[in-house]
Nucleic acid binder design. Structure first.
Length: 270
DNA sequence: CGAGGGACCTGGTTGC
DNA sequence: TGCAACCAGGTCCCTC
């Protein structure tokens, strides 16, 4: 269930248990993920974590020499086990620490990734060409407006493109477009600068609110097995097809755009 | 170069 | 109740 806020919450949840700790063993039970888990992940054994970062929806766990790139895909999760626990069906990877703790990677659909990087993490080809972080100062109205010129693709696809801006998933794309009053199918190149200003603000707002929520409701995410639907109360249009728009009362519409379910109010969004 | 669709997987829900 | 069809929070890769 990971969108950017959940990846950020996961990072904050695991960091205190991993930072400066030493890996004793990496156990790969199922190497068939989005890409095969490289045998090189064993290079992590004997090394300490020196920093943990998030880039888009990727988690970057830097070790003394090299590091791990983890992506949770559609259904992945990371948990800290404080004592040994027999692996369940989709518990694909364990990273054991000398503290006795274990970082366990679970991913039923196996769209996630668990990769080894020898050199600099940020220059890895998966990360090199990513757009700016939506909550950073680099993500500006001017930037988004400039990149959108002459683009015919639907604005929803445009903001979900990680080469434009990272971390805007299917839920928050619908949510931010509703907040900005922009129809999800409008061509990206046909949205005014003024409306991009509202969209940038909406994306920042919805993501930062969700991170705050994740920080409270998902505090025990790393200990338990997650809390599905934790932000459901906050959603304005997502998964509300047929229900009344909170703003005008018209029925919220559900439509497939770019092969993904999209939700919007046909009265409020143009 | 951009746009669009297929591909990768499992599991829960829906509908006949 | 059984079973098939459809849907799900991601994103790379191929074709046109």
């Amino acid at each position: 269930m990971p969108e950017l806020p959940e990846v950020e919450t996961t990072l904050r949840g695991i960091e205190p248990y991993l930072l400066n700790q030493r890996i004793t063993r990496v156990i790969v039970r199922q190497p068939k993920l989005r890409w095969p888990v490289p045998a090189h992940v064993c290079k992590a054994e004997g090394q300490r974590f020196v920093s943990l970062k998030r880039r888009g929806k990727y988690l970057l766990l830097s070790l003394e020499h090299g590091g791990l790139i983890i992506h949770l895909g559609m259904s992945g999760s990371l948990r800290i086990l404080k004592q040994p626990l027999a692996p369940g069906k989709h518990d694909h990877i364990d990273v054991e620490l000398d503290t006795g703790l274990c970082l366990r990677f679970n991913d039923p659909r196996r769209f996630g990734a668990f990769l080894w990087v020898d050199g600099d993490m940020e220059s890895h080809e998966l990360l090199r060409d990513l757009g700016p972080e939506p909550l950073s100062a680099d993500f500006t109205t001017d930037y988004l407006y400039l990149r959108s010129r002459d683009r015919k693709t639907a604005i929803k696809n445009f903001i979900m493109n990680a080469h434009i801006v990272v971390g805007v998933g299917n839920i928050y794309a619908s949510e931010s477009l509703f907040m900005a009053g922009i129809h999800p199918q409008r061509a990206a190149g046909r949205v005014s600068k003024q409306r991009y200003e509202g969209l940038v603000a909406a994306i920042r707002d919805v993501l930062s609110r969700a991170i705050k929520q994740g920080g409270t409701s998902l505090r025990d995410f790393v200990n338990s097995d997650g809390a599905p639907g934790y932000f459901a109360q906050e959603l304005l249009v997502y998964d509300r097809g047929g229900s009344d728009c909170f703003q005008c009362g018209a029925p919220v519409r559900q439509k497939v755009i770019g092969q993904r379910s999209s939700y919007y109010c046909p009265a409020c969004q143009h």
